[in-house]
């Protein structure tokens, strides 16, 4: 028995050592927004680099940063910039700021029911609608009916971005219903004649996506690919990958370079986001 336990321990240690020593294991954790894209990247990269193994998990941007600072992940996907507290935590954990890479663009559209006569709104009008200042469609040129708001869970990077940049930091109306995902918002808006929601520009299937004016005087812009990539559509954001600078070498650096190359960027469009402008690519 003792002999058995001894040999078992030796075997376990050997397995452990060989697992940690085998080169080219990259772990990616973080934003659920980026999850599908990250998986796509990983699959295609592993297809051409047989010696590299990439495992991708979601869980949320915050979870990703927690893992980055505990050094249980190599790369952290983020749908928002790192917060000061998270950077401070990283410095406390590994004495350096995490390196930030922009990896894709995301445009956010405002969805309404296809039956709505509305075509365009200014950013400020959208903000007023979601803070609850504007309660009736007729105030923005629609029918005389109350507006039903559909928003995201506050854990979503989309929620946070919308709050900071469209609501200008003000609170969402308490009556805004929080939906578990963009698909749920689209479903709800399709069922609700007087509903309004927001989400990724590529996910609005079936709803009417409003043209957005930056302010009263500027032209209304459709959330199309060209407009988002050129930055003329006013509601867009970057998606990021963060990495511990000490690990940013060898396989990991090569993978990050590939993601930001023309080759990697061509997968971005397949999952509904927008590729980086040429000057930010690698």
């Amino acid at each position: 028995m003792k002999q058995f336990i001894k040999s078992f321990c030796v075997a376990a240690v050997a397995v452990g050592i060989s697992a940690s020593a085998s080169a080219g294991n990259i772990t990616v954790k973080g934003s659920d927004t980026l999850l599908i894209l990250a998986q796509k990247w990983a699959e295609n990269y592993m297809g051409s680099h047989a010696d590299v193994k990439i495992s991708v998990t979601g869980g949320g941007t915050g979870t990703g940063f927690a893992a980055l600072q505990n050094q249980t992940t190599d790369l952290c996907d983020a749908s928002r910039k790192a917060k000061a507290a998270e950077i401070a935590n990283c410095i406390k954990a590994f004495n350096a700021r995490p390196t930030e890479y922009k990896v894709a663009l995301d445009g956010l559209s405002v969805y309404v029911n296809p039956e709505s006569p509305l075509k365009e709104l200014t950013v400020a009008q959208v903000g007023d609608i979601f803070t609850g200042k504007t309660k009736n469609w007729k105030e923005v040129g629609g029918p005389d009916a109350p507006i039903t708001l559909y928003s995201r869970e506050n854990s979503s990077g989309t929620y946070e971005f919308f709050k900071e940049h469209v609501l200008k930091g003000h609170d969402f109306a308490a009556s805004a219903q929080t939906m578990p995902g963009t698909a749920a918002i689209v479903q709800a808006v399709l069922k609700d004649k007087y509903g309004i929601g927001y989400g990724g520009a590529a996910y609005g299937g079936g709803t009417k996506q409003l043209s957005i004016k930056k302010d009263d005087t500027s032209p209304a812009i459709d959330p199309t690919e060209n407009n988002v990539e050129s930055g003329t559509y006013p509601i867009w954001r970057y998606l990021y990958v963060y990495v511990n600078p000490a690990l940013d070498k060898g396989d990991i650096a090569a993978y990050l370079n590939w993601i930001r190359s023309d080759d990697g960027q061509k997968y971005v469009k397949e999952v509904g986001y927008f590729p980086l402008p040429k000057n930010l690519r690698n």
């Binding site: 869980g59 949320g60 941007t61 915050g62 979870t63 940063f65 927690a66 600072q69 917060k83 507290a85 998270e86 935590n89 869970e153 506050n154 854990s155 979503s156 990077g157 929080t178 578990p180």
Partner: peptide, 11 residues
């Protein structure tokens, strides 16, 4: 359930 994943750990 909905918010824990995104909260800054220790915040």
């Amino acid at each position: 359930a909905a918010e824990m994943a995104e909260a800054v750990s220790g915040g």
